[in-house]
Write a protein that binds this DNA or RNA. Structure first.
Lengths: 188, 188
DNA sequence: GTTTCTTCTTGATGCAGATCAAGTGATGAC
DNA sequence: GTCATCACTTGATCTGCATCAAGAAGAAAC
């Protein structure tokens, strides 16, 4: 639970009293490798901070699953748009490795937003970060070739290559596993 | 200025006293067609609500400008990631038609965030909306063909086709003007 | 052990959409 | 008026990456 406090305090300062209000709402949830954390069509009820493991977010397309992104230690996780809109999830979330998430239920977070105004600020700041990150990714998707996207990932998140199957990485980079495999042989 | 109040109140309720605090910070800025509102490399200083006109956000690539999105009446505008990070803008913002923006300077908005806690909530809610919108766009980019992207735009924002050049629309839809022209001839 | 899955590799072929190129207005400068 | 420029169209050709296909190598099931 200390992780939760540390994570929130990356964004806003909490008094001990404030933290005592917040702490009881958080729960730990564990998932085995390959478990579906939030399935397609479910409404996402949880906002989570990753304590352990890697998760992937995916979107279904032609019987395939297109990988949208990963979450891991210290980052937040969850099917964000369903959590916000309270509509069935368009994305799914799955454990790539055994995972532990520290989570707060939507109902409770909304409650905290009302009772502790600084939590609105936490929400705002974490969203700002999310938007800036997605913008960076959008630029890469738009302007880079398959090879350049691979090189950019190699540079920015080399650890993912150890943790996630090449198939998922390929999908995340918007290319087929075949193309990814050829790039690996080519780029050294 | 009533537009500013109405726009904020789409997200949070303001007391008259609260509004009196907020109002003096907003200014009107006017731009002629084709004017650059925020240039590449500048730091975005303004968060704006569009009172009049259409603007486009673009990203430079190979001497071309890739169009990322449009803003118009009642929507907000600005180079969001530069406003947040206080770093030089990776995107540019340009007036597609004569435009009027109601804007608040970053310094003043940060000040309001501190003085009026409900403004953090406004910030949070507007970002939630932004993230959900970008997610929808990302799904479309990922899974639809050029023709399907065109059809989706026809359905969702037909008014853009009257307001913006086909070249910019094509770029927004991630295709060349030639492909766009052929689709127009084909899809009736 | 054998068999079946699954992931990854490597080669041959196909195609959506880009690129190259030429032409037609329409608009504006002088 | 002429000339230049820009937005759009239409045709011919090219190409990056996908698709199809057939192994190879490991992991798990029995």
């Amino acid at each position: 639970m200390e992780l939760v406090r540390r994570t929130i305090e990356r964004y806003v300062k909490l008094s001990d009293a404030g933290w005592e209000h917040i702490r009881p709402y958080w729960v730990e949830r564990r998932f085995a490798k390959d478990a579906h954390i939030t399935g397609l069509g479910q409404v996402e009820e949880w906002f989570s901070i990753v304590a352990e493991g890697v998760q992937r977010m995916y979107y279904p397309h032609d019987g395939e699953e297109v990988c949208l992104g990963f979450s891991y230690d210290g980052s937040w996780s969850g099917v964000f748009d369903s959590y916000v809109t309270v509509k069935p999830a368009r994305f799914g979330l799955q454990a790539v490795t055994d995972s532990a998430l520290l989570s707060i239920h939507r109902r409770d977070l909304l409650d905290l937003y009302d009772r502790i105004p600084i939590m609105d600020r936490f929400g705002r700041l974490i969203l700002e970060e999310l938007v800036v990150g997605r913008a960076t990714r959008e630029i890469e998707q738009m302007t880079l070739t398959a090879e350049e996207r691979y090189r950019a990932l190699l540079k920015r998140s080399p650890h993912l290559l150890q943790l996630v199957s090449q198939k998922d990485i390929a999908s995340y980079l918007r290319m087929t596993p075949e193309t990814f495999s050829r790039l690996r042989a080519k780029v050294r």
